[in-house]
Simulated scan of single mutants.
Amino acid sequence: MTSCFSPLLSWIISLWPEGEKRLALAADASTLSVGAARRRHRFTVLAISIVYRGCGIPIAWKIVEATKPGSWKPHWKELFRHIDKTVPTDWFVIVTTDRGLYAEWLYQQILNCGWHPSTGV
């Protein structure tokens, strides 16, 4: 699936209005519960989405077991690596997150892409 992330983003960018070289991305983690009350399976979806007209269009994601110990850092880094060379370098890209920007590595990862980090608050 990850091999589709960059082509998906390229396709969406190709539909962007002529001369518009600004893009808003949102990085978000959402936890989901599925199944009957006694047999719930909880998953966390780590997603990077294009924000367009108030909607998020997922372009890169990773689904992890919500109760599994471990850091999300390698997953986020991988998601950004899959798409960071896809957006033309002359575009202005803002990446919104929630409190996750307090993590220095995430802030730096966004800067390394040549993009602008911002909290969504």
Rank of each mutant, 00 (worst) to 15 (best):
A29R: 12
E20Y: 12
W11R: 12
P88I: 01
V64F: 05
A47I: 09
I12V: 13
I59L: 06
I48S: 03
D84F: 07
R39M: 01
I63A: 05
E65F: 08
I94P: 07
A66Y: 03
A66H: 04
T89K: 14
R38I: 07
R38F: 08
V45S: 15
I59P: 06
S33I: 02
G35Q: 00
V87W: 07
V64P: 05
A60L: 07
W16A: 15
S49D: 06
V64W: 03
R42Y: 06
I57E: 04
H41Y: 03
E65N: 15
T97L: 13
C55W: 14
I94C: 12
H41M: 04
S10P: 01
V34E: 02
L25W: 11
I12H: 07
D84A: 09
S14M: 05
Y52Q: 14
V51G: 10
A37T: 03
E20N: 12
T89F: 09
S49N: 06
I63P: 02
W61S: 08
A26D: 15
P69F: 02
H41K: 05
W72V: 15
S49T: 08
T86P: 09
T86V: 14
A29I: 11
V64R: 12
T86L: 11
G35I: 00
L32Q: 10
G19R: 12
P74A: 15
D90G: 04
R40T: 00
T89D: 13
G54L: 05
D98A: 11
S14I: 06
G19V: 12
A37V: 03
A29F: 09
K21M: 13
I63S: 03
W11E: 13
A66V: 02
G19L: 11
L32V: 13
G56L: 08
P74N: 15
P69T: 06
L46S: 11
A36Q: 00
A26C: 14
A36E: 00
H75I: 08
G56M: 06
W72M: 15
R38T: 11
F92N: 14
F43S: 11
A37C: 02
I83L: 09
V64T: 14
W11P: 05
R81K: 09
E65K: 13
G70S: 03
R40V: 00
H41D: 03
E78F: 08
I83K: 08
W91Q: 13
D84C: 11
W76I: 08
K21D: 10
S30F: 06
L79K: 07
R22L: 12
E78N: 12
D98L: 07
T89W: 07
E18T: 15
L15S: 02
D84Q: 13
I59H: 06
I94N: 10
P74F: 15
W72G: 13
I50P: 00
K21P: 09
G70V: 01
I94Q: 13
A24T: 15
S14W: 05
W72C: 14
L46I: 14
P58V: 08
D90A: 04
I83W: 09
F80V: 09
P17G: 01
A66F: 03
L79Y: 07
P17D: 02
L46P: 10
L46Y: 10
I94V: 15
I13E: 04
T96S: 14
P58E: 09
L15P: 00
E20F: 10
A37G: 01
R53I: 03
H82V: 08
